[in-house]
């Protein structure tokens, strides 16, 4: 077992276990925390794949931003000690069934296909390259998605403010 495999399996285990815990835990704050672990482990996978910048974003934005946002909203809307009511078996059973069926289907398809990895070495991506690509509008340039995402963020910001603002009435 190579170190890559070991690290991958370690992160996978963390991801799978804490994913399941996230969706089953009855304490909402714990669920948020488990989600944080999942996201951090995902960042670990990115590190493993040598996407350092991506991993940093994952940590900063997901783990640092979104999870904090979620925890804030939890604190605004729930008691910390509150135990969430669970759905009935009539709801859980078909959902679990369909999820397992879907997963089995996807995995069986994946296993049927033999992916051949690329060979040869490449430079690890650096931040400079990423920045140039983001503002480049030639081949392999991402200026347009970058602009689109900027507008989307602006719209989301305005929308969030408008929605969450206290009404006058």
């Amino acid at each position: 077992m190579t170190s890559n495999q070991f690290m991958f399996l370690l992160f996978s285990a963390v991801i799978v276990i804490f994913s399941i815990l996230t969706v089953t835990s009855r304490r909402i704050l714990r669920a948020a925390t488990f989600l944080l672990f999942v996201l951090v482990a995902t960042a670990g996978l990115y590190f493993l794949l040598k996407y350092n910048y991506l991993a940093a974003i994952q940590l900063a934005l997901y783990a640092g931003g979104i999870v904090v946002l979620i925890i804030f909203s939890i604190l605004l809307t729930s008691h910390i000690n509150e135990r969430l009511p669970t759905s009935g078996l009539m709801k859980k059973l078909p959902a679990a069934l369909i999820a397992i069926l879907g997963a089995a289907l996807c995995i069986s398809v994946i296993l049927q296909y033999n992916f051949i990895g690329a060979v040869g070495t490449t430079e690890p991506t650096n931040v400079k390259l990423i920045g140039e690509s983001l503002i480049n509008y030639g081949k392999y340039g991402y200026a347009l998605p970058f602009e689109v995402i900027s507008v989307l963020l602006l719209a989301a910001m305005i929308g969030a403010i408008i929605l969450a603002k206290k009404r006058k009435d």
């Binding site: 994913s19 996230t22 729930s78 999820a99």
Partner: peptide, 19 residues
């Protein structure tokens, strides 16, 4: 895939909007 369907399962059964 596993992560995705765990998420789907959560979407289908959790009652709290935040979860």
């Amino acid at each position: 895939t596993i992560m995705f369907f765990v998420g789907v399962y959560g979407f289908l059964v959790r009652k709290n909007l935040i979860t």
